[in-house]
């Protein structure tokens, strides 16, 4: 992945209800725990009422200037609208991970990017719930980027999940691993 490894700009986007915000918070929490600088900026207010949600994360070794991202290094897009909106903004050599369970094909972009068609919903469904498709996608991203392993994120699940959802931690962990496995297999 041809990005500046020490300064990662990541956009996660999808429908409201796909766990976009949770995936973002988990990534931010894990980045903080790993000793990195991180900013996490969610879409908010009326913007999220329309049914789409996105968040922007900057993960870096040095102080972060802008938490708002124009041209991301990575876009994790969980539905068609998000692919259409954010993929064209990717940097040259950027990474697009899209949910191929819901999106037929990656769009054409002006710059050359790396694309991972990840059947996130399918993998999640096989694990027992499409609700963990967000974790499948995050696992895939962590495996691909190598900033830290999926287990680092898994260890932070208890920090970001409300206590009543802690019963779902094992399933979420599995989903993170399966996302990572998918990338290992397909790029192997």
């Amino acid at each position: 992945m041809k990005t500046n490894g020490s300064y990662q700009q990541v956009v996660i986007a999808g429908f409201g209800g796909q766990g976009i915000i949770l995936a973002g918070k988990l990534l931010a929490q894990a980045a903080m725990k790993s000793g990195r600088e991180v900013t996490y900026m969610p879409s908010y207010g009326a913007e999220v009422r329309g049914g789409t949600a996105n968040c922007m994360l900057v993960i870096a070794q040095e102080a972060i200037s802008s938490p708002v991202i124009d041209s991301p290094d990575t876009v994790i897009a969980m539905n068609k609208a998000s692919v259409a909106k954010f993929a064209p903004k990717l940097k040259t050599g950027g990474l697009l991970i899209f949910n191929s369970s819901l999106v037929d094909q990656a769009p054409k972009t002006n710059v050359s990017i790396e694309v991972i068609a990840l059947p996130a919903d399918k993998i999640a469904h096989e694990l027992g719930s499409t609700k963990v498709a967000n974790m499948v996608a995050l696992g895939a991203y962590l495996q691909k980027s190598g900033i830290f392993g999926p287990e680092s994120a898994a260890n932070c699940l208890a920090d970001v999940l409300a206590e009543r959802y802690h019963v779902t931690i094992p399933l979420n962990k599995k989903a993170l691993q399966q996302g990572a496995e998918f990338v290992k297999k397909t790029s192997g």
Binding site: K25, V38, T39, Y40, M41, Y44, P67
Partner: peptide, 10 residues
């Protein structure tokens, strides 16, 4: 501003 209010940082 809205960014400072909404953004999360350590």
């Amino acid at each position: 501003d809205g960014i400072l209010g909404q953004m999360m940082e350590p």
